[in-house]
Amino acid sequence: MSILKNILTAIRGGASEAGESIIDANAVRILEQEIRDAETAIGKAKQSLTNLKATEIQLKRELNSLQNDAASYESKAMQALESNNEALAGEVAARIAEIEAEAADKSAEHQSLSAQVNKINSMIRQREKTIQKNRRELEKIKTVEQLQKATSSMSTNFAATSSSEHRVSKALDRVKQKQTNWEDKMEAGEWMAEESRGDELDKKLSAAGIGASSSVGGASVLERLKQKKAGQ
């Protein structure tokens, strides 16, 4: 049965009251220990699989060598027959028979070992899948455990303030108020920056002799008065 289903049943059953854990800490530790044990067992199984595989490869090599020997003797026996040396051919044939018997033994041993290697290999893969599944299950449990931890402190606060009506509305209003203040400040800041930029521009224009002169000298006033008098 899925662990998630058990957790949901526990949550719905109201086991998640403040301070009460829905997760059995011992169960988590046992599951963790089981995963660790299974991993150790797999590590050992892999080690013996490596040894078995090495023996299998060695047997295969020996088998090939025997088969090559048999082929080589066969060709030599043929040569002996061609040269009508039947006695020698007979000796070679006896040797071939010995080699073939040995090869048959090795082949049987190799096949049995090969089957064993495949079986252990698939068993390890199966166990690894189980471990991965258990790890995912454990992660679900830990997630719920952490969620509960993260939620519980605030839940206590909710409980403490439950008598206060419109808690959320009031909090939202405060956030809105702060945001409005912040926006006002930003706007003021932008206005200020704009103003300074305007001042800067005026200074630049003035320096370039463009626009109204900010400082009107006495000489220019006198000149203006003289012109006014001449015009009368």
């Binding site: 454990l138 992660e139 830990k142 997630t143 952490q146 969620l147 993260a150 939620t151 402190s153 605030m154």
Partner: peptide, 10 residues
């Protein structure tokens, strides 16, 4: 509230 499991940050 941020918490950490073996594989994720919540």
């Amino acid at each position: 509230n941020i918490v950490k499991t073996d594989t994720q940050l919540l």
